[in-house]
Write a protein that binds this DNA or RNA. Structure first.
Lengths: 138, 138
DNA sequence: CTACAACCTCTAGCAGTTAGAGGTTCAACA
DNA sequence: TGTTGAACCTCTAACTGCTAGAGGTTGTAG
């Protein structure tokens, strides 16, 4: 009961070239092949690829995922390392949120321009002159 | 009173290779050159590059900036287009914030794991199985 | 007039994919 | 069993937005 790359792609919603790319960079193990060199995947490859896709969606970098994967395949090791990776990532995310919130305020402020001429347009003004920003932090 | 590329770089905090890159992709006009082919910039190039840098910091894509720049140089046109670009961008940012907030909750949930063995580790579990997520939205 | 920092071009690399071109294989149906 | 055609294969190159080096030239201060 093996899957073609197309079936794997449909099950995981990861595009085919991406699956081959993951294999190439060693995130996915090389699958068995048919006589004609076509890839055949086992059900557990679906799980592994889901793991990868999910981690990517959560913003983990490929390197972090590699570490997490190797941890996941050694269930008797301490998870302190995964903990560290995740904590670092959480800080990152909080940071990103703060910066985006500032940006949102900025853009809202800019959008307040009500379609006059460019000469009086807040958007152009703000972009041309940093000092017109609400926040000085970027 | 012209500036070298290094001086322009220092004034705008845009790295030298990036300035040359912007010239190459047509965001910055080709400056005049000395006999020996070195670039010499005018004060207005500082303004233009500041505009670009600022827009980039606000997360605008190069294509959007190109449009904004052409608008900025026609002060008697309506700014409706700039308005549209900015609004689309704002929606994007709001979207990202929402997804990151969900991600933050997820990670916080994961970090609650207190360093047992991998076999019982929430982090590995959550990544391996999407259904364990707090949110079903990603 | 010489030393040397700063410039030049060109190429290649990064992450993380994605999109072709040009050719082969698998499986269903007649 | 033969034939179609969708799906597969590899390889290369593009994408975004830079950044880094190699190897060579120019400008300017002392």
């Amino acid at each position: 009961m093996s899957l073609t790359i197309g079936e794997l792609s449909r099950k995981t919603e990861v595009k085919i070239p991406t699956i081959r790319y993951y294999e190439q960079i060693g995130l996915l193990a090389e699958p068995v092949r048919t006589e004609g060199q076509q890839r055949r995947y086992r059900p557990e490859d679906v799980r592994r690829l889901n793991f990868i896709r999910h981690a990517r969606e959560l913003g983990f970098e490929v390197d972090a995922i590699r570490q997490l994967l190797s941890l996941a395949s050694h269930p008797d090791r301490s998870c302190g390392e995964a903990h560290e990776i995740t904590k670092a990532h959480l800080e990152d995310v909080n940071d990103k949120i703060a910066r985006l919130a500032a940006l949102r305020d900025e853009l809202q402020n800019m959008v307040a321009c009500d379609n006059g001429k460019v000469a009086e347009c807040r958007i152009i003004e703000v972009l041309a002159d940093h000092d017109k920003c609400l926040h000085g932090t970027h």
